[in-house]
Amino acid sequence: MKNKSSAFPYGVWMVIFIVLPLLLVGYFAFTTEDGAPTMENISKVGEFMPVLMRSVWYAVVATVVCLVIAYPLGYLISRGAGSRRRTLLMLVILPMWMNFLLRTYAWMTLLENNGLINRFLGFFNVGPFEMINTSGAVILGMVYNYMPFMILPLYAVMSKIDQTTLEAAQDLGSSFVSTFARVILPLSMPGVKTGIIMVFVPSVSTFIISRMLGGGGNLLIGDLIELQFLGNAYNPNLGAAISLVLLVIVLLCMSLLNQFGGEEEMEGALLDK
């Protein structure tokens, strides 16, 4: 009873800032400029299928790269002693104190054709490489910006794994590899799932990273939506329809993750080789 009444402000908050906007998106997506009901917007989204596929693909690659880098890092931090652990965590969080745009601009100047990296390589008569305005640059931007969101949940879950549990596994005869497969991985699955969602969702809908690091050739679904609201293509109804489709795709991906990420199945897949 008491809990319900104290949750009231949050209820109001959620209705105003989540439910209402969602309803509005739905309304715009299924109406014409004049407010007449239509399916045209939704069917028009099909034309942007390549962009949509590219967005999902980039986001998947960025998520996988994040996971591969963040997993050992998270493990390392979680096993570190007090002061070392704090220092490493600080290093992970520190970049987030800087503005997102600023960080991405920094990458622009680094990657430019006569940017820092190319000029440095020039000293050794290597390059210049074309790094900016490539798909690689966009994915790099995603990995760089969203890495902490992968590391932190992984770290949180792994730091809860008791060291003696790992010792128990060793004691029972398992080498490090087998301890990893049988104990660490299954116990860290919740963190893996959270991390994937936290990186995949913002990556798939980003527009600023692709615009700044991807040039014109790497238009993503986020850019497309932005164009419909703020750009020359001004068409909020179409923008709402694309947003809706993106939302459905994200939800599908997440439920897929929940299907696949069940602890038992992960464990079974790894052990029954």
Binding site: D162, E167, A168, Q170, D171, S174, S175
Partner: peptide
Amino acid sequence: LPPHKRKVNTVFQKYALFPH
């Protein structure tokens, strides 16, 4: 010899069962 190669087993203070 690392622990996993020793012919001893341990009952740990806080049991350290595998929670999963």
